[in-house]
Design a protein around this nucleic acid. Structure first.
Lengths: 141, 141
DNA sequence: GTAAACCCTGTAGTAACTACAGACTCAAGA
DNA sequence: TCTTGAGTCTGTAGTTACTACAGGGTTTAC
């Protein structure tokens, strides 16, 4: 492929996409980014389609999709065979996972909040938080 | 140390604590669990103090404390030099981190929910979720 | 021409585990 | 007592998603 005016190297792609150079190379290695053409000196040459794909990956990562989930989405898109139903199902799954994580964290928050509330912040080596973690609740002694 | 009646081996500790054998050995390797005495044949021998410490670690992990945070707590406890104020501060930090995670996930939930809501689940290769991820919002074309 | 920035591949590290492999030990049953 | 399977050991490597070099080649700006 002859270098084109709109080709850019990995540093430029990194700056434009907000994804680190090393991460871009990692994505290529694990296959979610296609290997781009190279210059005579071996430099990777990217065009706008790569930038769009990388931005897709980045947005999806920011939304908490795992790389494997992103790979699944990209397989659908690359094959031009996806249906809106398929994508919706994947996204719905992810949404439900997110909700479960929130619920788990909220339980945690509750427990932690209770623990902290039992602390009077004194200067003595005696603390209800430690007791709880050592399962030495006042009722257990 | 002469084997004592209340000594038990790693499998028993694993069953009693709910922490896997390999994880126990990992905790020892990274220093949050002390190396226990050994039998003549080289088997690790644990007593109730180890079980208590491991349960502390497990509870803290379940509460989302990182191993490094747990290490910090254990340093305080081991030195018998902690104050309730120190522990409270660490726990409060952790509580605030948990709250931030919840907030982040709730934002995510909102975005994902909006995305899914735009899907009519059709059978055609045309999906607002994909468009959004490719930054091809209707208003961007 | 020079020096710094850029890029390459390969390797290894992070956090918190997890899973072998190969070899030794123990315990239960015959 | 012998046998066999379970238990344990150390060492190594893998998981996920990056991240950070090292050493060497290339490009760019002054």
């Amino acid at each position: 492929m002859v270098p084109q005016k709109d080709d850019f190297r990995i540093g430029a792609l990194s700056r434009q996409s907000g994804v680190k150079i090393e991460t871009i190379r990692y994505y290529e290695r694990i296959g979610v980014m296609p290997p781009p053409p190279r210059s005579q000196s071996g430099y990777r040459l990217y065009d706008d389609s790569h930038l769009r794909r990388l931005s897709f990956i980045r947005r999806s990562r920011h939304l908490g999709f795992s790389l494997e989930e992103i790979r699944g989405l990209l397989v659908l898109v690359d094959g031009h065979a996806y249906s809106c139903a398929q994508v919706q199902a994947l996204t719905q799954d992810h949404l439900e996972t997110t909700r479960r994580k929130i619920a788990d964290l909220q339980k945690l928050e509750g427990v932690l909040g209770d623990m902290v509330a039992q602390c009077d912040g004194g200067l003595v080596p005696d603390c209800p938080v430690i007791d709880i973690l050592f399962d030495q609740k006042p009722g257990n002694q």
